[in-house]
Structures are given as C-alpha cells and as structure tokens.
Write a protein that binds this DNA or RNA. Structure first.
Length: 635
RNA sequence: GCGCCCGUAGCUCAGCUGGAUAGAGCAACAGCCUUCUAAGCUGUGGGUCGGUGGUUCGAAUCCACCCGGGCGCACCA
C-alpha cells in the first residue's frame, strides 16, 4: 500500500503543499457519501513521520548537520562506480589538473571542473587556481597563470584557454573532440548515452505497489512513470535492474474489499445488503459484482455469508489485479516480478523474519505486545511487531519482504513510495541496519501528490470509480506520452500540477509536443532529401558546419551521457525531460536558421548537416525512449 | 511542545559536489511564412532568490535564528 496515501489521505498527510486547501475541500465535499465510510480507512492509512527523511534524498543538499555525515558516505558509495563513466576529455583534463595541483604541493586538492553555464566561458572551466590561491594566500589570477604555464595539454584536446573573472581557467575543446563525439553517436546509435558505470550491480526497483482494492489513480501513475524511468536510468548506466510490484493482498483492507463486493452482489440480486464500515463504495465493485454473478449464476448471491465473502475475496482480488495490470500495460509499464504479501505469509517468511529478529535479540515483550528495539538503530522509538491481540503490524511482512529481496541477491533496493510514507523510512532503515545490511542497500524515492487541473479548476470526480481521476481516465484523455512526460517533468519530491488542457494541446505550448516535433522535423529532413538516415555516413568535417547553430547543436548532443549519469545517480528523471526540452529548443533553432537539404553553403555542408541531423535524431530518440516515450517521425 | 517538508518572475517550475550579468515554459507585448512541418523562430518587459545574521575570494545553494504555508507525533496499512 505504498501509494494509497495519495488517494485516501489527501486531507491529512501531505507535506509542503502550498495551495492545497482548496483541493482538500473539494475532495471532501465531492465524496461526502463515501468519505463517511472511508473515515476509518483514512485514519488507518496515516503514516508517522517523526523521523529523518533526509538521507533518502542523496542528490540533494543536506541542511541538517546531523544527517550529513551519514548521507555523504552513502553518496560516495553510490557515486563511486560512476566516476569511470565520465567523458574521456574531462577525465584527461582533470587528471592533468590534479597533476599540476600536486606539483604545487597540493596533492589530492579538491577542485571543480565543469561545463560553465555561459557558453562564453568555454567548454569546461575550473576553479583550481582559486582554490590553490586560497591555500597560498596568493592572487588567484596570478596563480591561474602559473597553473597554465605548468599545464601540459595536447592541442588535439584543448584548442584555447583563458583566465577569467576572479581566477577561473576556461578551456575550449579542440574541434577534433566534437568530431569524435559525433562519430561516437553514429557508432553507438541507440546505445549512445549508456554507460557501464553501474558495473552490473543488481538493483531492485519496487514501485506502484498499489492495494488491489480499486483502480489505479493519477498518483499511482506518477509513481509508475517515475519508477519505470528510474529503473531505465539505472539500466542505462549499467545496472542489472529488476522492476517489482508488491501486492498488498493481505490484511484488513482486503477483508473490507471482499465484504464490499459481497454486498454489491447481494444488492444486485435484490437482497438486503450494505457496504461495511471502512468498505469500498466505488462504482467498479458494482461492475465486478455483475461480472461475478454472470460467471457464477444467480444462485451465487444465496450462498451463506461466510462462503460468499470468501469467494468474493478471491474474485475481487483477481478482477482488481487484472484491471491494474491492464492499465499499467497500456501505460507502457511492465514488471519483472509481482510479489504478494499473502505469499510472504504463506511461505513462512513472516514467521522466519520474526525468528531472525528474536534470535538477534532485537525484540522484547512488553504490555502484551512484541516490540522491536529499533531505537538502537536510529529510529526514534521502539516499534510494535505483534499487537496484543496477536496480529502483526504491517512492519512485519514488510521486513520479511525486504529480507526476501536481500536474499534474492540484490545489492540495492529502491522503493518508490508516496511521500506520505516518509515517516516509515527510518523504521525500515533501522531494521535493515540491525540485520547487518549495508546502509546503501536500501533507499527510497518519494513521490509527491498529483493535482489534476482542468480549465483552471482542480480535480474532478471520476465517473467510473466514484473516486479520484483514475490513471486510465487520464491517459485515455491526454495520451500515454503526454501523461508520462508530465509526470516526469518535475522532481518526484515536488507536488505536481497536471494541466490536462495543456497536455492535450497540439502546439508548442505543450512541452511533449514541442519535443516530439523536433524529432519529427529531423525525420522530415530525410524525407525531403529522400535519404534513409542510416545511409548518411562518413566522417564529419567541422569545417563544413559554418553556422554557430551547427556547433551549438553538436555540443548539446555531447552532454547527453553526462546528463544520464547524473540523473541516474540522483534518481531524478526530470533532468532528462529538462534536457529534452533544451535539446528540442536547440534543434528548432538550428532547423529554422540553417538549411540542410540544398544548403546554400554547398554540397559539403548539406552532407555535414545531414550527418548532424542524423546524430541529433538519435539523441532525441534515445532520451525519449529512455523515458518510455515515442519518437514519432511525423506529426 | 517536538519533528518533517516547502518558500526563486504574474502563474508553474529548473538551477547539478557554493562560482563569473539568477534560467525555462506559460501569460503580456512587438516582429518573422515564394525555402527541409509557422505544430516553428526572433526580440522586449518582468525577480531585494521569504527575512536577518554567519562562513567564504565568492551564497539561491552551506550554517544559525526568525517569519510564512503545509503536515506529522499509534499496538493502522
């Protein structure tokens, strides 16, 4: 039930949602009837969140000193394999700068070598001289000159250098480097942007994990798009990824589901029935009831209650699972493994997990309950495992599940959870630490709420579920590509406004359209030229690309692998959508200002621009494909 | 009370391990179609980066405190 907070919990748990009051108000008003019965469920979906959430967000700055040490260790653990993935040019330059630093008696000095925001500051820039000057209390610009004098760079690598501003050293790369990038793009094709940085690390990405108690809603959709994209990013960076869905098919919510379906069956058969307290009121259960009666015959409604509910349970689970699977498949998300909570109980893993904790002396009995000593491992209070009524808290099967993932040989486990579950993280982390798993084993990516906006108005009711906008409603209306793109446009941890009108618009105001259009236009060039992109081959001579837009485009293409690495490291797919939009802007500008087919500069330029268009088309397609989006040839 | 999240242009948001005049889209305004999709391009206006201190050669970014908004402090999943 990783995500259910989204739907049921709107009125309470959302952190950091400005301007949400209206939404809460509407939702409450809108489902006044059902909401009454749902009160209990709402209450029981609340999550505690006292504890630290920081360490989850590795890629972000850490404001609290106390979390810092721990988080940084983890950042390093994650980044380490990625270092090799950086471009050869910047690595060579970095190495040379490090050599100079050590000649100046500053071995291992930390400095920055990065791509400056402003193209006027070169292709790469370093603050090395400024850092050195600080140690020596020297003038940074003079130090920069000394660094330059000492620097031994091949002209094949760097064409020009300058000292700028307070002491930056800027580098312009040799054109050979750009030609090499172009060659790499054509050679690697659909693989351009991939790296082996992950070194085959086995990663399990668990996402969506919705309760099988109703249709997937937009919040699940965002989780699906995000989890799938994170998984793809990890694949692109050389990790062995498993996409997994955890079915919460045990527990009281399934009992309520079964009772609710049974009530609908009786109702359809004209018998007295009512949805139990905490039950499910959605229209979909009426449809399920109809299906069940059609399948089993009218006598089904006359079964004794116990048996009826028992059989309704199986049917409800099956039908809800089918519907969720269908929606996910249509949304373009596939899972390698479906795990069932019930199966974890049935296989004895829950009992074994409990034994394991007990054997390690991590539990104690008090007040008729069994407790976990989670405070000894960073949680802020001890947690109940077995309630005094003898039943288990949710923590227990979840612990068993994570042990299971560990036992299946995963090096890393990433759970994509609704942000309302963030209070649960320290608990799980504490348990896994207690079991001796390395801290980097477990991580969580949080997904914030989605607010659907139409005509400037908030969310509306779904006609079919009687609840929220379902994922299906959404992608049927705006299309899968637009839905996925919009879900991925923002950082997962940021609340998202989904503007349905904008997503449907077939103009450049719509970012999905704008990006896909860039790809279609590039394809159009080849149609006009009556050439197949794959047949436009040969080395690229930079001298045949006279326009500044040509070079700008090529440089943009060159940044893609680095963007992928960073997006994977920080698990932030939105960086790919940001990149896509930037690249599309450059492509459109290039398309408008230069001419490929029948280039006025001559045949050599036409050929060079076709080569460039082919490369740009590859990169656009790769970035789109990575996010699960199509790259249309015409629109 | 304790804790967590958030506060960047009118709106929605980027801003990567602190860097060189703070960016994009939308909205507003002004232009550009005998030429590969005008489903596009170009330009203009618009910001005390919530506030105050601190660290630093340098802070939207790190630290402290404060203000404002949201949320949580269960034997519920």
């Amino acid at each position: 039930m990783r995500q259910d907070g989204y739907a049921q919990d709107l009125g309470r748990s959302r952190a950091g949602l400005q301007g949400q009051r209206l939404l809460h108000h509407r939702l409450r008003q809108g489902r006044q009837g059902p909401a009454e019965e749902r009160t209990r469920e709402v209450r029981c979906r609340q999550v505690r969140r006292r504890a630290e959430v920081r360490p989850v967000r590795q890629g972000r700055r850490l404001r609290q000193g106390r979390c810092r040490a721990r988080a940084q260790i983890r950042i390093q653990a994650w980044q380490a394999p990625l270092r090799e993935g950086r471009s050869r040019v910047s690595e060579a330059l970095r190495a040379e700068l490090a050599r100079v630093a050590s000649r100046f008696g500053a071995d291992g000095l930390e400095f920055v070598l990065e791509r400056p925001r402003d193209a006027g500051h070169g292709d790469l820039a370093t603050n090395l001289a400024m850092v050195l000057a600080r140690r020596e209390r020297a003038n940074p610009r003079k130090t920069a000159q000394r660094v330059l004098d000492e620097l031994n760079l091949s002209p094949a690598l760097v064409a020009r250098t300058e000292i700028a501003g307070p002491g930056f050293i800027n580098f312009w790369l040799a054109q050979d480097q750009l030609a090499a990038v172009h060659r790499a793009i054509l050679e690697q094709g659909a693989r351009y942007g991939r790296s082996t940085a992950g070194a085959g690390l086995k990663v399990n990405v668990e996402f969506v994990s919705a309760n099988p108690t109703g249709p997937l809603h937009v919040g699940h959709g965002r989780g699906a798009a995000l989890g799938d994209a994170i998984a793809a990013l990890l694949e692109w960076t050389g990790h062995a990824v498993t996409r997994e869905f955890y079915i919460n098919d045990a527990g009281v919510q399934i009992d309520r589901l079964a009772e609710s379906l049974w009530a609908r069956v009786r109702e359809l058969a004209g018998q007295p029935a009512s949805i139990p307290e905490g039950g499910y009121h959605g229209q979909y259960l009426r449809e399920n009831a109809r299906e069940l009666l059609d399948r089993e015959g009218p006598a089904f409604a006359n079964l004794p209650e116990t048996e009826g509910i028992q059989r309704a349970r199986g049917a409800a689970l099956e039908l809800q699972r089918q519907e969720q699977d269908r929606d996910l498949a249509e949304f373009g998300v596939r899972f390698d493994v479906m795990s069932s909570e019930q199966a974890i109980y049935d296989s004895g893993r829950v009992a074994r997990a409990l034994e394991l904790l007990r054997a390690r002396n991590l539990t104690f009995e008090a007040e008729g309950a069994l407790w976990l000593r989670s405070t000894e491992f960073g949680d802020d209070k001890d947690r109940v495992l077995r309630k005094s009524d003898g039943s288990f808290t949710y923590l227990v099967p979840d612990i068993a599940y994570h042990i299971d993932k560990h036992d299946r040989g995963f090096d890393r486990v990433i759970d994509v959870w609704g942000a309302d579950h963030h209070g649960y993280i320290p608990r799980m982390r504490a348990v896994l630490a207690a079991l001796g798993y390395p801290p980097e084993f477990f991580d969580v990516a949080l997904v914030q709420l989605v607010k659907v906006v139409r005509g400037g108005e908030e969310v509306k009711m779904s006609k079919r579920s009687g609840e929220f906008v379902t994922l299906r409603d959404l992608y049927e209306e705006v299309g899968v590509d637009a839905a996925r793109y919009f879900f991925l446009m923002r950082k997962g941890a940021t609340p998202l406004d989904f503007d349905v009108d904008l997503a449907k618009r077939q103009t450049d105001e719509n970012p999905v359209f704008y990006v896909q259009m860039a790809h279609a236009r590039l394809s159009g060039i080849f149609r006009t030229a009556e050439r197949v992109p794959q047949d436009v081959a040969g080395p690229l001579d930079l001298a045949d690309l006279p326009a500044p837009e040509d070079v700008e485009l090529l440089k943009k293409l060159a940044t893609f692998p680095e963007i992928v690495d960073k997006a994977a490291r920080d698990r932030e797919p939105h960086r790919i959508t940001v990149f896509l939009h930037e690249l599309a802007t450059v492509v459109h500008g290039w398309y408008h200002h230069t001419r490929a087919v029948g280039a006025p500069e001559g045949a050599a330029t036409e050929h060079a621009r076709l080569l460039l268009a082919r490369a740009a088309r590859i990169v656009l397609a790769n970035a789109l494909t990575l996010l699960g989006l199509s790259a249309p040839d015409r629109m």
